[in-house]
Nucleic acid binder design. Sequence first.
DNA 1: CTATGGCACGGATT
DNA 2: AATCCGTGCCATAG
Length: 473
Amino acid sequence: MLLQTQKPILRPQTTAHLAQTMTLLEMTNAELCQKIESALAANPALEVVSPARCPSCHRAVVNHGVCPSCQARPAGGQPIVFVSPRRDFWRHEGSTCTDEGEEQGEEWNAEVEDLPTFVAQQIAPELAPRERMIAAHLLSSLDDDGLLTVNLLEVARYHHVSLQEVQRVQRLIQQADPLGVGSTSPQEALLVQLEALREVDPPPPKTEQAILWGMEALSRRAYGELARLLGISVEEARRLAQYIGEKLNPFPARAYWGDVRHRPATFTLPLRPDILISRLTEEEDTPLIVEIISPYAGTLRVSPTFRRALSEAPAEKREGWRQNLEEALLLVKCLQQRDHTLVRLMQRLVVIQREYVLHGEAYLKPLTRAQIAEELEVHESTISRAVAGKAVQLPSGKVVPLARWFDRSLNVRTALLKIIAEEQQPLSDAQIARLLARQGFQVARRTVAKYRSMEGILSARMRRHAVKTSAHG
DNA sequence: CTATGGCACGGATT
DNA sequence: AATCCGTGCCATAG
């Protein structure tokens, strides 16, 4: 197999190695990029050489002389999995990495950085000179979502003004165009938007309370729970959730940038993929190409020059250099191991979830991390770490968290929704369970009931009467 | 008597 | 080792 070409040392020699491997494994590319960059800056023994390129397709590939997708056409639905060098959209500010100008992400960053200026222009006329400083402070502390990352009280203390004054400035910012920017929490952003909408488009009753107390239930789509919490009917709860979902946005910056420029949904998501999946051909039986994006833009290695220089090093520097060399070796080794684990994981995952990758959520197979761990003969916590926080871009362009591939119930829930949507007369939980079993979903009757309430669907009996009576939760 | 929702246990996840 | 989620058992509403 082509994977064997880069087979790393599999057994951790030291506890340091073990610990670092685990840490690296659970790191997202974004985090890892930073770590590598600081390591490169601090350790002269490390260097990045430019990636090898495939002579035929010119694709850059880490650790391969030939692009794996040109090298061989795997048989029997086997995917092509390889580690590819970091793309531009992973670059951090101040990075020295060059080339590889890729289609996708860089404009995203450029525009988001513009947001503070954009807001500043709108509110500038309203500001007293003294408030300008405060506004600048707040606006420069916005995160990608348009929410504040600083405490208002701290800002007030920093500028030696009262909290009220800071709040006044904040309110001005919140009223500005991406409605709700500069809020300290998603809830606050929602409330600001709600206030502004109130006259134009009156919200359902208790919307405010739902935002204040029910966010957690709301985000889980636990409409039944929400209804109980607010003392309203489930039907009202659903309508309320729909209102919030359609008209309001807890992350003002995302809504704004998403709306103004009609770009694919991929880039309005805050997720940047760690792994890209594409198809080799348009055929149904195409091999899938899985690129695991490496956190560096070439091959990371221990500099041979440095190694040579070590033997001629002046005595007083020798100890420090030797330590550098050791750290460098360790880091490289650990990263290789990380790559290897990810490659093996994806290799298997893509085979199992092939239908999902090609055709979407409905084809997601139930899967547990433990199951994969057994097949790959690694500890389950290894899988857990490898999956945590990672995002994958599917051939469709959609970016999803890798964790979703392991959802045990999502597909069952969609099937359940479909059944209920299509049924003429209300079915009992037991009947639904049997229908689900016929579709290959083995779930207990009790679980059907749980999913039902999660989705905010009334019981069979209630559904029968819901038409005339508006029952009370 | 049947369909549901509450509570608690055990395996999965982190 | 702590926490979450699916299930089984049981009381209760219809």
